[in-house]
Design a protein around this nucleic acid. Sequence first.
DNA 1: GACTATTTTTAGGCTAGCCTAAATTTTTTG
DNA 2: CAAAAAATTTAGGCTAGCCTAAAAATAGTC
Lengths: 222, 222
Amino acid sequence: MEISLVEENYIKAIYKLQSLKEGEGVSTSDLSRHLKNKAASVTDMLKRLSLKKLIQYQKYQGVFLSAKGQKIALEVLRKHRLWEVFLMEKLHFKWDEVHDIAEQMEHIKSEELVQRLDAYLGHPKVDPHGDPIPNAKGLFQALKSKTLNHYSHKGKFIFTGVTEHSKSFLQYLSSINLKIGHQICIEEVNAFDGSIKVRINKQQPCFFSEKVSANILVEVIK
Amino acid sequence: MEISLVEENYIKAIYKLQSLKEGEGVSTSDLSRHLKNKAASVTDMLKRLSLKKLIQYQKYQGVFLSAKGQKIALEVLRKHRLWEVFLMEKLHFKWDEVHDIAEQMEHIKSEELVQRLDAYLGHPKVDPHGDPIPNAKGLFQALKSKTLNHYSHKGKFIFTGVTEHSKSFLQYLSSINLKIGHQICIEEVNAFDGSIKVRINKQQPCFFSEKVSANILVEVIK
DNA sequence: GACTATTTTTAGGCTAGCCTAAATTTTTTG
DNA sequence: CAAAAAATTTAGGCTAGCCTAAAAATAGTC
């Protein structure tokens, strides 16, 4: 069964939104917002994906990926993240530049290619944004990291990834010289607006709004 | 102006067929044969490409690439051949395996990507089949090589490329251990059917039908 | 030069994916 | 629980790219 580029993008979107929702199905309007298509177009596609047994879909009830759909989502995700690693490690792109290109490359269809690429890159476990890369069987370690705004007290953390991949956010992190693996210390917490004062790698102090810290994944240093 | 994947493939096909015809325009039926689409579909597309000024097209008169069209053809060709080099040099694909994958990768749109890939590969001048790679400005050395069947006498040659990219042909060449750069000596010519007896790298002798030698590019060793 | 065969184009139809506008269902709220 | 609001689906339409069948133009032949 052939799966089109557009279908792959819908499946990827359902996968992403599903992982945020825990239990509930993904709604038409969630998808409409995320894909920037009109709700009517989404309904259209959901019917087609349902016919192909890639999703479970009941009118008005939201949608879930089937096992088949899940598999495809993970394959696309795997390809996307491997290509991101390639673009950064081998072609020396900056981390805010890789997403759009990987968005195109993730649709290249060749099992052999993915397998060889993976080996060539040394079977990386995470991509340049800290997102885990599914292996050939679609398995990956769930992130143990939480976003920085979960912690409302002083403490030391390791920066492990981001939950927001926009150019502007990633460029901001580069501009304050924050890279994956760096140490972040919370030095002050402002209870009123959730903003925090942090020190990165024992260097200059820096202020994060709650919006920023909600997109920074960290693990506690014990 | 956006150019679709399908449009790119038409332009590539026109470019290829044009280079075989020297002067004449490319006919609808040539394209139909080459792209495996019906003639009516081709006419359809030619009208659209003409509206976009990518080709010069007059009803019943065949078609030529415009300067814009030529530029696109060379960009796509450049990408195709660079990706072929990548697949062979870095991912160690065999030369009969790279074409289909490169066919997909040539449509990835990112100037920056192509430029970096080119640098990463060391600005290669030819792809794994001996085809010249256009540079960023679309320039490349024309092949000086001729196909082996042009020579109807004994002589020494260097194997520089192929004019046929099918899996079966390339696999045949691999099976007789013929690789680009190898020496080919014509030892006997059969005037009746154009077949020849050759010796590759001073090793085992071997017979080529005219069909084979018509697809093998060589340069004379002086 | 007329007749036939071939090539090419036109006309009309189909699917994938998108859209708007209208109808329907679900959710919220007084 | 009824009415209003929000979400979703249906209906109908559009474009890109493909198709078949029929018409028109070109090329080949006697």
